[in-house]
């Protein structure tokens, strides 16, 4: 693991990046990285503007993770979570206006990234928004249950869809997304189990 100031970069991230760069024959990696960077910058700017403090940024094979210190109000957190996709959508509009082959590719990529991140899963920005909106109404425990149900249902749905599409002669894109979802959620589950186990041991 590499550490540079408050930024942590895991070996897996570098390995994935290297492999993508090696295998990317369509020149999609650079615009994709650009879109992802701008997405994170959007979050960061919103957090700084709203008085939050970013404790660290972790780049791993599963994506980027921002750690915040202190807590924010629901409203502010909602704005911060929305800032990333919002920047992507704005950029998509701007790039589409600009036109040109590259502009369209970049616009499409930003739009796809922004919309994907708005899905209401706990690991994505949409999930955070859902928490910010629904937690005040449902309470933390109910919210956690709802989130878990949504997560599992989505993972199961995507997994089934991925297998069906692969069976029907499609490609593995959806299956990879499904595996990624399962992986990330599994990791989250493991961490919460570990925390529970420890707190029970007290």
């Amino acid at each position: 693991m590499l550490r540079w100031g408050r930024v942590e970069v895991t070996g897996g991230f570098l390995l994935l990046l290297a492999w993508l760069n090696y295998r990317d024959t369509q020149g999609l990696l650079l615009p994709a990285l650009g879109a992802a960077c701008i997405h994170e910058l959007g979050h960061w700017a919103a957090i700084r503007l709203l008085g939050g403090c970013v404790d660290g940024l972790r780049l791993c094979a599963a994506g980027a993770e921002m750690r915040l210190s202190g807590s924010m109000s629901y409203c502010r957190e909602l704005l911060c979570a929305l800032a990333g996709p919002a920047v992507n959508l704005l950029l998509a509009l701007a790039a589409a206006r600009l036109g040109g082959e590259r502009g369209f590719v970049f616009a499409g990529m930003n739009l796809a990234l922004g919309c994907f991140n708005l899905l209401p899963l706990s690991v994505l920005d949409g999930g955070r928004c859902l928490v910010c909106v629904a937690e005040p109404l449902l309470g933390p425990d109910r919210m956690q249950q709802v989130q878990r149900i949504v997560d599992r249902a989505a993972a199961a749905l995507v997994l089934v869809g991925g297998i069906v599409i692969l069976g029907a002669g499609g490609n593995v894109t959806l299956l990879v997304i499904a595996l990624w979802l399962c992986c990330v959620q599994g990791k989250g589950l493991l961490e919460s189990c570990r925390k529970k186990g420890l707190s029970r041991g007290v």
Binding site: Q26, G27, L28, A92, L93, A95, A96, R97, G99, E101, G103, F104, V105, F106, A107, G108, M109, L111, A112, G169, G170, N171, V172, T173
Partner: peptide
């Protein structure tokens, strides 16, 4: 080829962008 299965991601992205414009 197995991973892509003839998908032209670039064209798909470009088309999405074009629809936006």
């Amino acid at each position: 080829a197995v991973i892509r299965a003839n998908t032209d991601f670039r064209a798909a992205f470009a088309q999405l962008g074009r629809a936006l414009s």
